[in-house]
C-alpha cells in the first residue's frame, strides 16, 4: 500500500449525494462516481466509466449486495462490479478502479 501519497480531493458536501445511490464528481478531466451506501454506513468511489461499453455512467448505477458484498450495477447492461475491489462480479474480464473516500466536516473527500 502506498497510502502515504494519497491526495485528498474535496469533492462536494454530503448532501450532494443521494442516500443509497451515486453521483458523479469531476476531478480535472476525470470523472469519479461516488456512492453513499447508507445501509452499510459506507462511502465508495470508483471510475464513472463502465469498461464494458466505455460509457460515463456508473454513478447512475444501482447499489446492492451480492451475498453481503457491496456492488454497483451499470444502467446499460446490468454489469455488476464490486465496490470493494472493482472486479466484475459476473466473472467477466474487465474491472474498474476504486478510490478511498473519507468524510470530514460534512464534506466528501476522494483519495486520488
Amino acid at each position: 500500500m502506498t497510502t502515504q501519497h494519497t491526495t485528498w480531493f474535496k469533492a462536494a458536501p454530503i448532501s450532494a449525494f443521494p442516500e443509497n445511490g451515486g453521483a458523479c464528481v469531476k476531478y480535472h478531466d476525470r470523472q469519479i462516481a461516488v456512492f453513499h451506501f447508507k445501509q452499510l454506513d459506507k462511502w465508495y468511489a470508483t471510475d464513472n466509466e463502465c469498461p464494458h461499453k466505455h460509457q460515463m455512467i456508473l454513478s447512475r448505477g444501482m447499489l446492492g449486495d451480492q451475498q453481503g458484498h457491496p456492488k454497483v450495477a451499470c444502467p446499460f447492461h446490468k454489469k455488476t462490479f464490486s465496490l470493494e475491489t472493482g472486479l466484475n462480479l459476473q466473472g467477466e474480464d474487465y474491472c474498474i478502479n476504486v478510490y478511498p473516500v473519507k468524510v470530514e466536516d460534512g464534506f466528501v473527500f476522494i483519495g486520488v
Partner: peptide, 10 residues
C-alpha cells in the same frame, strides 16, 4: 434481508 440489488429494487 441484506441491502437489496438491481433485481429486487426495481
Amino acid at each position: 434481508k441484506g441491502c437489496g440489488c438491481e433485481v429486487c429494487k426495481p
